[in-house]
C-alpha cells in the first residue's frame, strides 16, 4: 500500500499562472462595461446587437448552454439608476434592475400584485439578481412579472441616444419573445401606478417552489376608475389581458352597484368572468402542461383572485390575503 493519502490533495495544489494561456479565439465576444446610463445608451447605439445583461438569469443560461453567442455583452450592473426606485404620489418608478427581492420586501403596499409575482420568481438566489427589466427584455410569455404589469397598467420607460419614450404595457409585447424595443433602445424603468385597490397574483407550476409557470394570472381592482384589469402569462404566444372578461366584469360590477354597495360577487358573475378569462387564452401543449389544462387553470385562478381581491376590497382583508 503506497500513498495512503487521498487523491484530491494532488489536485488541489494548482498553479494558476499556468492556466492563463487561453485566448479569446474560443468564441469571439466583447464585454462592454458602461459606468453610467449615458455610456450604456452610447454603447447600445454603437453596437445594436449587444445583449444587455443585468441579473444574468436569462442571458447566462443561454450562454452556458451554447444557445447564444452574442458578439457583445452589455453589462448594466454598473448603472446605479437601474437599481433605484422612486415612490411618487401617484406612481412608482421602478428601475429595471431592482431585484425581485427588493420589490417583495419594500414595495408590497404600493405594488401588491407585482410583489406577489416577484415572490413566485424562481428561487431566492434568482430573486436577488433578477428584475423586471430582464422579464421585459426577454419577453417570454412565461415571465412571472408580466401578468402583474398588465393588470396594473404599467408603462415601460425605454431610451436610446435618440431619446426616451414610455411604452404602454399593452403595446409592449409584440410576439413570441419579442417586444416593442428598437435595436438601440434599453429598458430603463417601469412606471406603475400605486395600487388604488387590491391586487392578486397566482401562478401554477408543477412544483411548490422554483418553477416556471405553466400559466399565471394577475388581477388588479382599480376602484378609482371602477375598472378591473387582468394579465395572463404562459397561456398565449405573448402575455395578454383578458379584455372581454374585464369588460364583462366592469359592466357587471357597474350595473349591480357593487363598487358602492360592496356586495359579495355572485357566483354566476365570477363563473362567467372565469370562463371569459379562459377564453382569452390561446395556449399550446408542451412539456409543462396541456393547452386544455392551461385554459382550465387560468379560469380557476381568475375566479379565486377575483374572490380574494373583492373580499379584500370589501374590507375583510385579514382573512383572505395570503401571507409569505
Amino acid at each position: 500500500m503506497d500513498e495512503p493519502g487521498p487523491p484530491h490533495t494532488i489536485w488541489l495544489d494548482r498553479n494558476h499562472s499556468e492556466t492563463t494561456e487561453t485566448k479569446k479565439r474560443a468564441g469571439q465576444m466583447d464585454f462592454l462595461r458602461p459606468a453610467s446610463w449615458e455610456e450604456a445608451l452610447a454603447a447600445k447605439a454603437e453596437h445594436p446587437t449587444a445583449v444587455p445583461i443585468a441579473g444574468g438569469t436569462d442571458v447566462m443560461v443561454e450562454i452556458n448552454f451554447d444557445h447564444r453567442r452574442p458578439e457583445y455583452l452589455l453589462d448594466l450592473n454598473r448603472v446605479g439608476d437601474l437599481y433605484e426606485w422612486e415612490v411618487g404620489e401617484e406612481t412608482v418608478r421602478l428601475g429595471a434592475s431592482v431585484p425581485y427581492t427588493r420589490i417583495m420586501e419594500h414595495l408590497r403596499p404600493e405594488l401588491p400584485g407585482l410583489a406577489l409575482a416577484s415572490h413566485t420568481v424562481a428561487s431566492p438566489q434568482i430573486r436577488n439578481r433578477g428584475g423586471v427589466g430582464g422579464n421585459l427584455g426577454t419577453a417570454s410569455p412565461a415571465g412571472d412579472a408580466h401578468p402583474a404589469l398588465l393588470a396594473a397598467g404599467a408603462r415601460v420607460e425605454v431610451e436610446s441616444v435618440r431619446g426616451s419614450r414610455l411604452i404602454p404595457i399593452d403595446d409592449f409585447y409584440t410576439g413570441v419573445k419579442r417586444n416593442a424595443l428598437a435595436p438601440d433602445e434599453l429598458i430603463r424603468a417601469v412606471h406603475i401606478d400605486r395600487a388604488d385597490g387590491p391586487q392578486q397574483y397566482s401562478k401554477v407550476g408543477t412544483r411548490n417552489a422554483m418553477v416556471i409557470a405553466v400559466c399565471a394570472f394577475g388581477l388588479a381592482l382599480h376602484p378609482a376608475t371602477r375598472t378591473v384589469r387582468t394579465g395572463i402569462g404562459s397561456a398565449a404566444p405573448t402575455p395578454v389581458r383578458a379584455k372581454a372578461a374585464e369588460e364583462f366584469l366592469n359592466a357587471a360590477l357597474d350595473e349591480g352597484g357593487f363598487w358602492d354597495n360592496g356586495r359579495i360577487i355572485t357566483p354566476s358573475v365570477a363563473k362567467q368572468f372565469a370562463e371569459l378569462c379562459s377564453a382569452a387564452c390561446n395556449p399550446i401543449d408542451d412539456v409543462r402542461g396541456t393547452a386544455s389544462y392551461r385554459r382550465h387553470a387560468v379560469g380557476v385562478m381568475a375566479r379565486r383572485t377575483l374572490m380574494w381581491t373583492w373580499e379584500s376590497y370589501r374590507g375583510d382583508a385579514a382573512r383572505t390575503e395570503g401571507v409569505a
Binding site: I53, G56, M60, V61, F65, A122, S123, Q125, N128, R129
Partner: peptide, 27 residues
C-alpha cells in the same frame, strides 16, 4: 445545472446569495 435551478453554486456577491453560474465573470 448552470441554469440557476439547483443552488449548488450559491455564493454571496456583496453579501447577497446568488447563483455564481448566472453571474458573468465581468460583472
Amino acid at each position: 445545472c448552470e441554469q440557476g435551478e439547483c443552488g449548488s453554486c450559491t455564493v454571496r456577491l456583496d453579501g447577497v446569495p446568488v447563483c455564481a453560474c448566472l453571474v458573468a465573470a465581468g460583472q
